[in-house]
Design a protein around this nucleic acid. Structure first.
Lengths: 246, 246
DNA sequence: GAGTGGTCTAGACCACGAT
DNA sequence: TCGTGGTCTAGACCACTCA
């Protein structure tokens, strides 16, 4: 879990030294070259490597801590943080926590799991140039034995080959992915929809019931990882986000 | 538009010097003591004021720039930035831009405007200890002469006394507020709802139509500013947010 | 106890841009 | 032109925490 020095990112671009160091380290983390838990070289070593003073490296590290990409412990060193969310809107992907946060027992069930090639429409949604192999997983999350939400997910096997061999019997795909794959960008699209027949059946509500539907796409350095639709039944479910300006 | 030195925030708390400086300046901006456009004292003056080196002040300023609270121009100085949004989820409050971004002509109409005292339920929602005077405004936004969304808003006159005299005939309340009041925290709650009778009438859709409803609350340094519900009809409307980890 | 990060200094030179 | 921010140095001391 130790990292060598980061590969210099691009020769062009960054004017200042600390911007270059920042780009190198950020690149190593977001590309997956330094997966979560990796120990980053010490400030002194990085300073020597870049031929600069410790202060310059420290400024970069301070920014990375503020950005939530790394955590630091005195004497122990600096480590790549595990993926995390910044707002409740993002935490929705960990449905288990959401349910348990309500004080309800959590349940989980796989409805469908298929290995196949991406269709043209999916390729467009995922921003693909050419079709890729993927896993399609439909699953249901329960709270106190009642359907809580429906999850329909595609995982690109080009980005995450291990997903082909995973049954997701124990760990829901969202949690499995977030523990394994670092991501650089995510996009949410949130809509109100009326339940169509399959959704109504899965969630056990009348057809036409207003549902909150979240589409989430995740990339790692331009490579699409996953596309997921999560559908919550009825008017009770709320998505909450808190912000500060900047 | 020039600022004196910032008032020290609290005597307790912040351990390190640059944390104290950060808290002071951030406090001055978010409290409204330094409104947008205010010129902040020069680095050298702040360093002298706090009895520290310029480097220490600079570290704070760099963080404030990264946070988007200030902008800096060589030779000119450092200024408090005008309020801005970080994601499309926040930009939703400027419905006009949203509509014009679709290439459609924008329209706006006030349905109701009432000066009154807050009810108990509203006080709870706003996090008030005691009732306050407020303005209640219902308005409708149009795209290409079709109802685009319904806006139901409360503005606290304790936080924004000028709102009592404002008719909102020209400028929608959202735009009026964001140009005037700095905010420190906002909270969104997003739900799917079926249109009830008044909503169905205002948006000209059948009752029960799934609608996306956003509740947005905004505070300035613990003082509630506004509570607004925005309801979009049907399944076509999407809320989009893009994130990077950290 | 020793090594790490946390913080800070008192300078320095440069580039930009307002005047 | 020349004052401002942008960047960087080569040290320093301290506190925490792991071994």
């Amino acid at each position: 879990m130790n990292a060598p020095f980061p590969e210099p990112a691009r020769k062009d671009g960054p004017r200042s030294l600390h911007q270059r160091i920042l780009a190198d380290i950020e690149g190593a983390i977001l590309s997956g070259a330094w997966p979560p838990g990796t120990q980053i070289p010490f400030e002194q070593d990085l300073a020597a490597r870049y031929g600069c003073s410790r202060m310059t490296v420290n400024k970069v590290m301070t920014r990375l801590v503020a950005a939530g990409l790394i955590e630091r412990r005195r004497k122990a060193g600096t480590f790549v943080r595990h993926p995390h969310s910044r707002s409740a809107i993002l935490e929705v992907v960990d449905v288990r926590r959401e349910v348990e946060g309500l004080g309800l027992p959590y349940g989980f069930e796989i409805l469908r799991r298929v290995l196949r090639r991406s269709t043209e429409a999916e390729g467009a949604r995922l921003g693909l140039d050419a079709p890729v192999d993927l896993v399609e997983i439909a699953s249901r999350h329960f709270a106190a034995r009642h359907p809580f939400c429906l999850e329909e997910r595609l995982i690109s096997l080009k980005a995450v080959p291990e997903a082909a061999a995973e049954s997701f019997g124990d760990l829901p795909p969202g949690a499995w992915l977030s523990a394994r794959v670092p991501w650089s960008t995510a996009e949410h699209r949130i809509r109100a929809v009326g339940a169509d027949a399959p959704v109504a059946a899965a969630l056990m509500v009348p057809r036409g019931t207003p549902c909150l539907r979240i589409e989430r796409r995740t990339w790692s350095a331009r490579e699409p990882i996953t596309l997921v639709f999560i559908t919550y039944p009825g008017e009770r479910h709320e998505l909450v986000a808190r912000f500060a300006p900047g």
